[in-house]
Design a binder for these strands. Sequence first.
DNA 1: GACCAGGACCAGA
DNA 2: TCTGGTCATGGT
Length: 282
Amino acid sequence: MYRLEPELFNLNYTLDCGQVFRWEKEGDWWTGVVGNNVIRLSQEKESGQLLIDSELPPEFFSRYLRFDDDLSSIYVSINRDLLIDRAINKYKGLRLIRQDPWECLISYMLATASSIPTIQKRICLLSQFLGQELEDGYFSFPDPETLANADLSLLDRCKLGFRADRIKTAAEEVCSGELDFDALFRLEYKYARERLMRLRGIGEKVADCVLLFAFEKMESFPVDTHVRQIIQHYHIDDSYFETCSNLSCMGDWGREYFGHYCGYAQEYLYYQKRIEGFVSLY
DNA sequence: GACCAGGACCAGA
DNA sequence: TCTGGTCATGGT
């Protein structure tokens, strides 16, 4: 066990905001599976020090928790109105997480039209049935080969519904090399998005989540039900939507409005809405 | 029992 | 190009 002293970081917001699905909190400690590691994290209230119970080195966590992002500068760049200003101040220290591309891809494919607890349950079942047990009750996320070769009857027991055959097909593409993660990293946002959306089961929203959380595309702006409701409820930049009102337009709007780090803005707005609903700005 | 959840997709207009 | 219905599942 050791400590880090990250600047401008809040562990609870970061792990609770809905970007990752494999962390659970008990008392002051979070336990999660990352790769083949079971990790325990906690943060001291007064000092802000991060307590790490893991064999992995500090560099791993600096990377995973994106300590290389200059949050202060990002806040300045995305702070466009009272709503985002409130979210930034209320949830200060929330950082995006650098997720594993494979796990992130499958996780968001099976997240469509589902609540977060349901998503967590599906991933938990999938790992129990097809992953490896790392320690009591904690399983690794299944690798592409295992998922590609899995029986649909087994996937059905993971309560995936209509998503089952889609993630199996995606796994097959990853195994064959047809879907190349290295290539996605190199592609610029727009083209990486088009490539992901060629997969059945991936639309604009899922593609944006995967690109934002696993492929370094900060200019992704996932428009889910919460973000859509926010834009409509607060009538933010209403004139923009006079000519178009669909979800695709909302994504384009977010990119223009918040700039390069709109992905961060989205995450703050999303979390604020999920936790507090429509907040008053007076 | 209707409605919603980190939606995607298709048919029909 | 845009809209409505449909697809499973679990929680409120």
